[in-house]
Amino acid sequence: MSAARTPDETRTVLDSDDIARALTRVAHEIVERTKGADDIVLLGIPTRGVYLANRIAERIHVIEGRDIPVGSLDITLYRDDLRRAPARALLPTTIPPGGIDDKIVVLVDDVLYSGRTIRAALDALSDIGRPRMVQLAVLVDRGHRELPIRPDYVGKNIPTAKTEKVLVHLVEFDGDDAVRLSGEPGEGS
């Protein structure tokens, strides 16, 4: 019973240096696992996944000296919980000029939780083209999967309680880089 934190309090679990290191490692892993990242396309899931995809692409550029195609994939229209909430505004989907057919698509998102976003992303991808392989990179894996989906590249595994919230801030969108936890830690956290 760690009732020391009230629900309003937040705890920083990754600071900007941690995020930078995690992304650099993920970039190296992608290059290694795809044997040089020859035909990969990074697709970020808006909003923050797109910024993360761009950062990973910059790092791969440093490692391999080549530009990596980056796009964004909005999954709003493929969600399975659309009828539970007011309709959401759509976010941009941009597919790089080379397309995704026969490429290795690496989906990039900030937090992996139930896996439902990624399920929707896989549906969206199949309407756009047929990649040779699809992989998943996330900054934070917080557990509590509801579908048989696993990430290929993880910045940081953060065990959480379902009552907690993972707040990802990125400079490009929020003005600072940090991953914070808020809410009741609850039992078993």
Binding site: P86, D110, Y113, S114, K165, V168
Partner: peptide, 17 residues
């Protein structure tokens, strides 16, 4: 609900990721 576009942030809440 036209008039109340959903302003909540999906990923920050971590509800669906």
């Amino acid at each position: 609900q036209l008039g109340e576009p959903d302003g909540s942030d999906r990923t920050a809440e971590g509800t669906a990721s």
